[in-house]
């Protein structure tokens, strides 16, 4: 009985940790999504620009002039990186979801066991 109590405690702690991890990963996923959207908007804007348009990049407090091809490839590189990051994080989210689901089932089992024991004690 006491052993089960301890087990319950440990299980709910791990479950909590899983959920915290899940939340932070989901937040990261949302941030990536926002960045992806922004980069896509920039890419769209670049497409409609003339080749000799003046493009500047903000580096710290200064604006540096950049070639269009350079800027376009920079944005493409970012989009590629972000895409990879998103699929990596999706995998992690799935992993965490599965893990936390497993823990939840275990937790429920232990809880039921404890309840049953309590009922028997009350009955007997």
């Amino acid at each position: 009985m006491e052993e089960d109590q301890a087990k319950l405690q440990a299980l709910s702690e791990t479950l909590q940790k899983f959920q915290d991890d899940l939340q932070t990963t989901i937040d990261a996923r949302q941030k990536l999504e926002a960045q992806q959207q922004e980069n896509k908007a920039v890419q769209k804007e670049f497409v409609s620009l003339a080749d000799d348009a003046g493009i500047y990049k903000l580096v710290g407090p200064v604006l540096l002039k950049q070639d269009k091809t350079e800027a376009v490839s920079a944005v493409e590189g970012r989009l590629e990186f972000i895409g990879k990051e998103i699929s990596r994080i999706e995998g992690r989210i799935q992993e965490l979801q599965e893990g936390s689901e497993k823990k939840r089932v275990e937790l429920l089992q232990v809880q039921q066991k404890l309840q049953l024991a309590a009922q028997q004690q009350a009955g007997g």
Binding site: V42, L49, A53, G54, Y56, K57, L58, L63, V75
Partner: peptide, 12 residues
Amino acid sequence: LVDVGTGFFVEK
């Protein structure tokens, strides 16, 4: 100079 996002500015 227009800020088009992600640190890029375009002359328009």
